[in-house]
Measured scan of single mutants.
Amino acid sequence: LQAFIKTLTGKTFTVEMEPSDTIENLKAKIQDKEGIPPDQQRLIFAGKQLEDGRTLSDYNIQKESTLHLVL
């Protein structure tokens, strides 16, 4: 599935991932794409901060969901 990552500066980019991917995997993909170390990334979806060990499906993240990236 493709999801949108929106930063506080208003920049939006897309990442490809599977519902079974962990938040940790997602942070690694963001690092590959944007060069931001995972330990500096905080991802917010539906008002909740996402925990590394959980999966996208745990948070009911669907295709074309928008996640907010806070540094």
Score class of each variant (00 low, 15 high):
residue 20 S to K: 08
residue 10 G to Y: 03
residue 62 Q to N: 14
residue 68 H to F: 14
residue 52 D to R: 03
residue 53 G to D: 11
residue 4 F to D: 03
residue 40 Q to P: 01
residue 21 D to C: 04
residue 56 L to K: 00
residue 4 F to V: 14
residue 56 L to V: 13
residue 40 Q to T: 09
residue 11 K to R: 13
residue 64 E to Y: 15
residue 63 K to L: 09
residue 69 L to Q: 01
residue 63 K to E: 12
residue 26 L to K: 00
residue 8 L to Q: 14
residue 71 L to A: 08
residue 68 H to L: 15
residue 53 G to I: 06
residue 8 L to R: 12
residue 51 E to P: 02
residue 6 K to R: 11
residue 14 T to K: 10
residue 11 K to C: 06
residue 64 E to N: 15
residue 40 Q to S: 09
residue 7 T to M: 15
residue 68 H to R: 06
residue 39 D to Q: 10
residue 12 T to D: 05
residue 23 I to Q: 01
residue 63 K to C: 07
residue 28 A to I: 13
residue 43 L to D: 00
residue 9 T to F: 12
residue 14 T to L: 12
residue 22 T to P: 03
residue 47 G to V: 02
residue 69 L to K: 00
residue 35 G to W: 02
residue 55 T to V: 08
residue 38 P to E: 09
residue 59 Y to V: 04
residue 28 A to Y: 13
residue 6 K to M: 13
residue 34 E to I: 15
residue 34 E to H: 10
residue 30 I to F: 01
residue 66 T to N: 05
residue 46 A to D: 14
residue 26 L to S: 00
residue 45 F to M: 09
residue 71 L to D: 06
residue 67 L to W: 04
residue 27 K to V: 01
residue 57 S to G: 11
residue 66 T to L: 11
residue 9 T to I: 06
residue 69 L to W: 01
residue 5 I to K: 02
residue 50 L to E: 01
residue 25 N to D: 12
residue 59 Y to W: 02
residue 31 Q to E: 10
residue 28 A to G: 08
residue 27 K to R: 05
residue 23 I to Y: 01
residue 50 L to P: 02
residue 66 T to R: 06
residue 4 F to G: 03
residue 61 I to Q: 04
residue 52 D to W: 03
residue 67 L to C: 01
residue 65 S to G: 07
residue 10 G to S: 03
residue 38 P to R: 13
residue 17 M to W: 12
residue 43 L to S: 00
residue 28 A to L: 15
residue 8 L to T: 14
residue 52 D to S: 07
residue 10 G to K: 03
residue 7 T to W: 06
residue 53 G to P: 06
residue 27 K to I: 01
residue 65 S to L: 09
residue 29 K to F: 05
residue 23 I to W: 02
residue 5 I to E: 02
residue 49 Q to N: 11
residue 49 Q to T: 14
residue 29 K to T: 05
residue 7 T to A: 05
residue 44 I to T: 11
residue 64 E to L: 12
residue 23 I to R: 01
residue 32 D to K: 12
residue 32 D to S: 11
residue 28 A to C: 07
residue 24 E to I: 10
residue 71 L to W: 10
residue 61 I to R: 03
residue 5 I to P: 01
residue 44 I to A: 04
residue 49 Q to V: 15
residue 48 K to W: 07
residue 59 Y to G: 01
residue 36 I to Y: 15
residue 23 I to E: 00
residue 60 N to H: 09
residue 29 K to W: 06
residue 10 G to I: 03
residue 38 P to Q: 13
residue 40 Q to G: 05
residue 42 R to D: 06
residue 9 T to E: 11
residue 41 Q to R: 00
residue 14 T to R: 09
residue 47 G to Y: 04
residue 60 N to P: 04
residue 59 Y to A: 03
residue 29 K to C: 04
residue 49 Q to I: 15
residue 4 F to R: 11
residue 55 T to P: 07
residue 54 R to C: 09
residue 15 V to L: 11
residue 59 Y to Q: 03
residue 3 A to S: 03
residue 14 T to E: 07
residue 43 L to V: 05
residue 43 L to N: 00
residue 33 K to A: 11
residue 30 I to K: 00
residue 28 A to F: 12
residue 13 F to V: 04
residue 18 E to R: 14
residue 49 Q to C: 10
residue 37 P to R: 09
residue 60 N to A: 08
residue 44 I to N: 05
residue 60 N to G: 14
residue 66 T to Y: 08
residue 33 K to H: 13
residue 61 I to W: 07
residue 28 A to K: 15
residue 9 T to P: 04
residue 30 I to R: 00
residue 43 L to M: 02
residue 24 E to H: 11
residue 2 Q to S: 10
residue 70 V to A: 06
residue 23 I to P: 01
residue 30 I to H: 00
residue 52 D to A: 06
residue 1 L to H: 06
residue 50 L to V: 05
residue 9 T to V: 07
residue 69 L to T: 00
residue 10 G to V: 03
residue 45 F to G: 02
residue 24 E to K: 11
residue 61 I to T: 06
residue 54 R to Y: 14
residue 37 P to L: 06
residue 19 P to Y: 13
residue 64 E to R: 07
residue 23 I to M: 03
residue 35 G to R: 04
residue 63 K to R: 11
residue 58 D to Y: 15
residue 61 I to C: 03
residue 23 I to G: 00
residue 65 S to M: 12
residue 25 N to P: 00
residue 20 S to N: 13
residue 47 G to I: 02
residue 31 Q to M: 13
residue 9 T to R: 10
residue 10 G to M: 04
residue 8 L to A: 14
residue 40 Q to F: 09
residue 58 D to P: 01
residue 37 P to V: 06
residue 67 L to R: 00
residue 22 T to D: 02
residue 17 M to T: 07
residue 37 P to N: 06
residue 46 A to H: 14
residue 57 S to P: 03
residue 26 L to W: 01
residue 17 M to A: 10
residue 16 E to K: 08
residue 13 F to K: 00
residue 64 E to K: 08
residue 70 V to G: 04
residue 27 K to W: 02
residue 48 K to Y: 09
residue 58 D to F: 15
residue 42 R to Q: 12
residue 61 I to G: 04
residue 4 F to A: 07
residue 66 T to W: 09
residue 48 K to M: 13
residue 16 E to M: 13
residue 64 E to V: 07
residue 9 T to G: 13
residue 19 P to N: 08
residue 15 V to G: 01
residue 58 D to G: 04
residue 40 Q to W: 09
residue 22 T to R: 06
residue 39 D to T: 10
residue 59 Y to I: 06
residue 1 L to G: 06
residue 61 I to A: 04
residue 49 Q to M: 13
residue 17 M to Y: 14
residue 29 K to Y: 08
residue 60 N to T: 06
residue 51 E to T: 05
residue 29 K to P: 02
residue 21 D to V: 03
residue 51 E to F: 05
residue 59 Y to L: 06
residue 13 F to C: 02
residue 51 E to I: 07
residue 64 E to C: 09
residue 46 A to L: 11
residue 32 D to Y: 09
residue 68 H to T: 13
residue 24 E to V: 06
residue 55 T to C: 05
residue 70 V to N: 05
residue 60 N to E: 06
residue 35 G to S: 04
residue 51 E to A: 06
residue 25 N to F: 12
residue 59 Y to N: 02
residue 70 V to K: 04
residue 18 E to F: 14
residue 24 E to W: 14
residue 24 E to T: 07
residue 13 F to E: 01
residue 42 R to W: 10
residue 25 N to I: 14
residue 37 P to E: 07
residue 22 T to Q: 03
residue 14 T to S: 10
residue 3 A to G: 04
residue 32 D to T: 11
residue 14 T to V: 12
residue 71 L to Q: 08
residue 6 K to S: 11
residue 26 L to E: 01
residue 15 V to T: 02
residue 62 Q to I: 12
residue 41 Q to M: 13
residue 2 Q to R: 14
residue 36 I to D: 02
residue 55 T to M: 10
residue 50 L to I: 04
residue 6 K to G: 03
residue 56 L to D: 00
residue 48 K to N: 10
residue 37 P to T: 05
residue 32 D to R: 12
residue 45 F to C: 03
residue 58 D to N: 04
residue 29 K to H: 06
residue 36 I to L: 06
residue 16 E to H: 10
residue 65 S to E: 08
residue 64 E to T: 10
residue 35 G to F: 04
residue 40 Q to D: 08
residue 3 A to H: 04
residue 8 L to E: 15
residue 62 Q to M: 12
residue 54 R to T: 07
residue 23 I to A: 02
residue 6 K to C: 11
residue 12 T to K: 06
residue 19 P to D: 10
residue 15 V to A: 01
residue 19 P to K: 08
residue 65 S to D: 14
residue 21 D to Y: 04
residue 60 N to Q: 08
residue 47 G to S: 04
residue 12 T to P: 04
residue 6 K to Q: 12
residue 20 S to Y: 12
residue 23 I to V: 13
residue 61 I to V: 09
residue 47 G to K: 03
residue 28 A to W: 12
residue 56 L to R: 00
residue 40 Q to N: 09
residue 20 S to W: 14
residue 11 K to V: 08
residue 19 P to F: 12
residue 62 Q to H: 12
residue 32 D to L: 14
residue 44 I to W: 15
residue 69 L to Y: 01
residue 66 T to M: 09
residue 64 E to H: 14
residue 21 D to K: 02
residue 62 Q to T: 15
residue 20 S to T: 11
residue 28 A to E: 09
residue 58 D to A: 05
residue 3 A to N: 03
residue 60 N to R: 07
residue 1 L to Q: 06
residue 23 I to N: 01
residue 53 G to C: 07
residue 55 T to R: 11
residue 17 M to L: 13
residue 5 I to R: 00
residue 63 K to M: 12
residue 33 K to L: 14
residue 5 I to G: 02
residue 53 G to T: 09
residue 22 T to Y: 06
residue 29 K to L: 10
residue 10 G to W: 03
residue 5 I to W: 03
residue 48 K to E: 12
residue 1 L to M: 11
residue 29 K to V: 07
